[in-house]
């Protein structure tokens, strides 16, 4: 009997749904808390009860990424692979990967100090959206519409000065309806999608209270999600796209540890079941 290991650092509804589904599908499911697991350079795969395949589900990106590296060091197959997690977790790397693969994505400007970012903004003009290269749930994302906002945003970064604060990721403000589209892809296939409607402000993150609504997967959405998933290296992903009024769909983000509890309640397909089935097929290949 195949055994699926679900790695977590905060046991959420999603991880419990995956565990329950794995059992229902007749395979063993083992839960592994990354916070209390130790690995060393002499460790071997058989030292751990981690089964045949790991679903990495840590809420902390860096913890999950480094834990994935450790598991791959033990020759353990992990979804998603380190390379995929590494690219998706960093907005700058992800954006460049999308562009390199000819996937429509908002125009984005990179600079490496606040002075460089000021010059970039002066050249391009307002508005632009500033986003931290690492981070999620809309944290630190804000539209910069004027000089005062720019100076305030950059000053805060200069004061906090964490390593990633020195990387400035400024993106065009896409002309779109007050919503975006989240597509869950499993093995490059779009299995469910939802509109995420802004709850009055600029951001459309569900974590911030945006209103989810089921979205029909059109051929365009399906094609775009598949292309984006393939560009990242596949696995289980959350592809975010906006409906640009001139260009049509543009992909602005691909998420590595996709949250799905809201969508799972309304989706036609059983999302955790598709995930577990994909994991089981993955080890058979």
């Amino acid at each position: 009997m195949a055994k699926v290991c679900i790695v977590f650092d905060r046991l959420r509804t999603e991880e419990k749904m995956l565990q329950k589904t794995a059992s229902e599908l007749g395979c063993d499911a083992v839960m592994l808390d990354a916070k209390i697991t130790q690995i060393n350079t002499d460790s071997r795969r058989e030292d751990y009860d981690i089964g045949d395949i790991v679903l990495e589900r840590c809420v902390s990106y860096f913890r999950g990424l480094h834990f994935t590296a450790c598991l791959e060091f033990l020759d353990m197959p992990v979804l998603n692979m380190f390379e995929v997690a590494n690219i998706c977790g960093n907005k700058m790397l992800m954006t460049m990967r999308l562009k390199k693969n000819n996937i429509p994505t908002p125009k984005t400007y990179f600079s490496f100090s606040s002075d460089g970012a000021v010059k970039n903004l002066e050249k391009v003009g307002f508005p632009l959206v500033i986003k931290p290269v690492i981070g999620s749930w809309g944290r630190g994302v804000m539209p910069i519409r004027d000089r005062d906002t720019m100076e305030a945003a950059f000053e805060i970064r200069d004061i906090t000065d964490s390593p990633h604060d020195r990387i400035y990721y400024l993106q065009e403000l896409v002309k779109r309806p007050p919503r975006d589209i989240r597509v869950i892809t499993i093995g490059d296939e779009a299995v469910a999608a939802m509109y995420r409607k802004s709850s009055g402000g600029f951001k459309t993150n569900i974590a911030l209270g945006a209103d989810p609504e089921i979205c029909e997967i059109t051929k365009d959405i399906e094609d775009m999600a598949t292309k984006a998933s393939k560009a990242m290296g596949g696995g289980i992903l959350g592809v975010d796209m906006m409906e640009d009024q001139d260009r049509g769909l543009v992909v602005h983000e691909v998420n590595n540890t996709v949250e799905f509890k809201g969508l799972a309640r309304v989706a036609k397909r059983d999302i955790p079941k598709e995930m577990i089935k994909f994991a089981l097929d993955y080890i058979r290949k």
Partner: peptide, 25 residues
């Protein structure tokens, strides 16, 4: 709080981690 140990009705709690800069999807 995070449930650190659970053995029947014996439960141990520990302070839950606070939201980190790298938390999310």
């Amino acid at each position: 709080f995070e449930i650190a140990k659970k053995d029947g009705s014996n439960i141990e709690l520990k302070q839950a981690e606070t939201v980190g800069e790298d938390w999310g999807e």
